[in-house]
């Protein structure tokens, strides 16, 4: 078995096992740490797909920002982090059944992938230069008027709205009379 495939299996095993720990660990704080490990595994998969830019973005956005945000939220709601009561609701067997059925369906389709879409997916195209100029191409694509400039601007507006909105929502209620004085 080639070395790349062994690395792939190790990285995916880390990703999936820590993802399972995220949804099963009773201690929410531990679940958040497992989530960081799972994100790290996904970053490893991006590196295996020869996309270092996405791996770096994954590290910055997910491990750097979103995980810290989640850990802050867990600490602020800490009193409910009891490890004695069940972390699952009453419908968890049905949820597990639905997830397993979906996984079976997806897996049965994916295993026939090579016969369904012949020519794609055996080997990746060898385009060293395309991958090396990927970040440049991405920057051009985000600013060229015939590509993604509108979606890019929409994304920046979305981030601004989310920033303002989350500050407004999370702000404690201020007494209006006290506010006027």
């Amino acid at each position: 078995m080639p070395v790349m495939q062994i690395i792939f299996i190790i990285v995916s095993a880390v990703t999936l096992v820590s993802a399972i720990m995220v949804v099963t660990d009773r201690n929410l704080f531990h679940a958040a740490l497992w989530m960081m490990l799972s994100f790290l595994g996904v970053a490893g998969l991006y590196i295996l797909l020869e996309n270092g830019f996405m791996a770096a973005t994954q590290l910055l956005v997910y491990i750097g920002a979103i995980s810290i945000l989640v850990i802050f939220a867990i600490m602020m709601t800490r009193r409910l982090m009891s490890t004695t009561e069940s972390p699952y609701n009453s419908q968890w067997p049905w949820g597990g059944l639905a997830a397993l059925l979906l996984l079976g369906l997806l897996a049965s389709v994916i295993t026939q992938f090579d016969s369904l879409v012949p020519g794609v997916g055996r080997t990746a195209p060898e385009t060293e230069s395309a991958i090396q100029s990927m970040v440049t191409d991405l920057g051009v694509a985000f600013t060229a008027s015939d590509q993604y400039v509108l979606v890019f601007e929409l994304a920046s507006v979305l981030l601004l709205v989310a920033l303002v909105g989350s500050i407004i929502v999370a702000r404690p209620d201020i007494d209006p009379e006290e506010d006027n004085s």
Binding site: T15, L16, A19, I20, V22, V23, L28, A31, S38, V42, V70, A73, I74, T77, L80, S86, P87, Y88, N89, Q91, W92, W94, G95, G96, A98, A99, L100, L102, L103, L106, A107, I110
Partner: peptide, 19 residues
């Protein structure tokens, strides 16, 4: 697909909103 299904199970089965 496996990661998606694990996440879906977490959404359906967990009680805590942060989880």
């Amino acid at each position: 697909a496996a990661l998606f299904c694990i996440g879906m199970y977490g959404i359906l089965a967990r009680r805590n909103a942060v989880a």
